[in-house]
Amino acid sequence: MSLRVIFAGTPEFAAAALADLLKAGFSVPLVLTQPDRPAGRGMKLQASPVKALALQQGIPVAQPRSLRLDGKYPEDAAAARQALLDARADVMVVAAYGLILPQWVLDMPPRGCLNIHASLLPRWRGAAPIHRAIEAGDAETGITIMQMDAGLDTGDMLLIERLKIAADDSTASLHDRLARLGGRMIVEALELAACGGLTRTVQPGEGVCYAHKIEKAEAQIDWAQDAAQIERRLRAFDPFPGGLSQLDGEAIKIWRAEPAEGSGPEGQVLRVDEAGLVVACGQGALRLTELQRAGGKRLSAAAFLQARPIAVGAVFKNA
């Protein structure tokens, strides 16, 4: 049996899954994605990666601002409802869509809505599971294919696969591996669903954490934190929002760092060489290896220091 699949998603993580579904031969009569957003220096409206792929493949796209029939944009929700009905799909696949699905959406496909979630549920529910896993120092993460319900990532688990978090993983690198894993797993889940082979497992009630959305203000580096904690946050916030600190009144972005020997006042530069600059933290020290000036490019420490020398004894401060 070949399932007809409505796909709902927005960023690159979701586009990877849509590409795998199409490659596997699933019929996708409709794609839901977020409305176009302004982006780039010109702030021109830009289609999401999912929309771009759908249009390339000739798949109809709906971009409602809301799916709540009684909400702020009832006309959008009504139009989306008609599009969903017309699609006559067996199942909906959801991956980082960005809109809450009301009950009428969850109930519409005969086989319900399956979510590709980038966490070993229930460890990280919410908007930013990849970032928060790195920030917390988790040794592993993974993908959970979940049967969606009205709660926030509370539905029954269908498939789960683990993935080791490397010591140098950033959100960018881990995202790409999880996206590939999610695409493979949703194909497997739908193939099993087509022959009645999926087993549902209720999520454990213990070990639940909420992965709050990443805020730009979190970029501010608190040098009073220990070196390991700051280093994890830098990796977690790459590519957004990075790490930010003030040096002699100038905002400096810090992208990469590694543990180093040394101690001193918080934020003080202890050593400077081609390998980087060693900065004291609340406990331990970090060698900063990749930095960026406002309006500039990300540079290795050696290249950065050629353009912007930093003396021993200088102090990085919170903004």
Rank of each mutant, 00 (worst) to 15 (best):
A127M: 10
G183R: 04
D222I: 02
K213Y: 10
V272T: 11
D156C: 12
I214A: 14
Q147P: 07
I134H: 07
G98C: 05
T141M: 03
V5Y: 05
A166M: 05
R125C: 02
S263P: 07
P204F: 02
L190N: 07
G183W: 01
L244A: 15
A128N: 10
A227K: 08
D138A: 15
L299I: 06
L152S: 11
A194L: 03
P74Q: 14
R298S: 09
G98L: 00
G137V: 11
A78I: 13
R256M: 06
Q147M: 13
L45N: 09
D222Y: 06
A77Y: 13
W255I: 10
A16N: 02
W104K: 10
Q56F: 12
A260V: 13
E206Y: 15
R88S: 09
P204Y: 02
L277G: 12
L67R: 12
V61K: 14
F13N: 00
A228F: 12
E75G: 04
A194M: 06
E274Q: 15
E218N: 05
V202P: 12
A80L: 08
Q63T: 07
A54V: 06
Y210L: 04
Q246N: 13
A79L: 06
W124Y: 09
A19Q: 15
R37F: 09
H212Y: 11
I160L: 01
A307K: 11
I214G: 12
R180E: 10
A179N: 07
K51Y: 06
I254D: 07
A193I: 01
I310V: 15
A14S: 07
A118V: 00
A77D: 12
L152W: 11
S300L: 05
T33F: 03
E266T: 13
R111C: 05
V187F: 03
I230G: 09
D86W: 00
R37H: 10
D153P: 13
I252S: 12
A16W: 04
K253A: 08
L45F: 12
E161T: 10
L181W: 02
T289Q: 05
G197F: 04
V279I: 14
P29S: 03
L247N: 14
K23G: 08
Y73L: 02
L99Q: 08
T201M: 12
A83D: 11
K51Q: 10
D86K: 15
M108W: 08
T171Y: 00
Q268R: 09
L178S: 00
R177H: 06
P239D: 13
